[in-house]
Design a protein around this nucleic acid. Structure first.
Lengths: 210, 210
DNA sequence: CCTATATTACTGACCGGTCAGTTATATATA
DNA sequence: TATATATAACTGACCGGTCAGTAATATAGG
């Protein structure tokens, strides 16, 4: 096995993706301010100078991470919604479980924590996230609620007023996973958590037995 | 109007409290890493050197802030619980509303965001918070749930499994207040939020009409 | 096909600014 | 006056961002 004869390769296409991937991991682990560009570059197998060939500042890189991580996710979420028939309860259940599969298990799940933690220091990021992610996510759930209300499956309520409340336990769970979980502070096992969450929430939403 | 003839006073007793108060505000606003000790000292009307007479490091100050902010709060919470008669629903409602009064409106409410944001970088703080605050808080709600289950007011369920889920919307609300709210990203008005939260949750917990 | 020349992705040392923590000095109070 | 308390100038490490130079690749001419 000969030692590699080149110190590095030219890989213009792959670099940005590798850099945002490394950045996502580190930003989630340490937060925006505490993450060093040297370290991101090192994890991507590249030097800090190279990073500046592809992104014009640390904040620009941060934005790229958010965009790249979330836009595909949102697209998938919307396809899922459109293609799913059945009762509102089943739809809700399916969306929640799929959401956990993608967000809960993947590295993207670190983004909510990142956003809430850094929002005050980077307001324009927070607003971007609010417009592109939170607003679209809310529309999805509001549509599900409305389907259930229209069909008489759910009691009549204002879907807008309940979205935040209903999805809080999901967001909190993913924040927990990327903060306290990492310090050995455990939560209820995820299976039980999701089961009980769905049960509690659907009981709270369903129509009163007249 | 004469210039003040003394440049400063000796106020050994008052300093620590003034410093932790200033530190709480700034840590909540900016996060731990982004807060400058110079600025904390300035806000407390003192110099940075003075700060080091009372706290041995930035992290030590951070711990003091957490301790001082939370221990009295927990004490009050427990008194409240003990002194409150009535049905489990009413007890739950009262605790939640009182909690919002204290935590939601006061500066202490910034602490949860701070903890989740900094947990990975300061694991020993996270563990302290978990042991002293989260565990005690959970005990409170578990006791309420148990009262409701025993009296037949709530359906039978495992209180431990539901605590996290049930309190998530409260924690999320207070985190939101100290992050996205500050960037103009609004949430549902708090009155409606609490009303709908209580309604949804109590519907989810109550016994099935046989 | 070979090699000289041009191109550009990439490196890593460096700079200016920042900030936690220290210390020499000054002042208030007993 | 003695000393506890407070100040402010200082230090040294760190980090985002820059840039002169280097090495890998593309290509043109023989």
């Amino acid at each position: 096995m000969p030692a590699p004869k080149t110190r590095w390769k030219r890989r213009k296409e792959a670099r940005p993706q590798e850099l945002t991937a490394a950045a996502l991991e580190l930003f989630v682990e340490r937060g925006f301010a505490a993450t060093r560009l040297d370290e991101i570059a090192a994890r991507a197998g590249v030097s800090k100078g190279t990073l500046y060939l592809y992104f014009e500042s640390k904040e620009d890189l941060f934005k790229a991470v958010i965009r790249e991580g979330l836009l595909p996710l949102l697209a998938e979420g919307e396809e899922l919604m459109a293609s799913m028939p059945g009762s509102a309860s089943e739809l809700f259940r399916a969306i929640v479980l799929r959401w956990w599969e993608i967000v809960g298990e993947g590295p993207i799940g670190g983004i909510p924590k990142l956003i809430f933690a850094e929002a005050r220091n980077f307001p324009e990021i927070a607003r971007f996230y609010a417009d592109e992610v939170i607003e679209r996510g809310k529309r999805l759930f509001v549509a599900v609620f409305q389907r259930g209300i229209d069909s008489g499956e759910f009691r009549p309520f204002d879907p807008q007023a309940l979205v935040h409340i209903v999805i809080s336990p999901l967001i909190m769970r993913v924040i927990w996973k990327h903060s306290l979980d990492c310090c050995g502070v455990t939560n209820v096992p995820i299976d039980a958590y999701l089961r009980e969450y769905l049960d509690l929430t659907l009981r709270g939403l369903r129509r009163d037995p007249a």
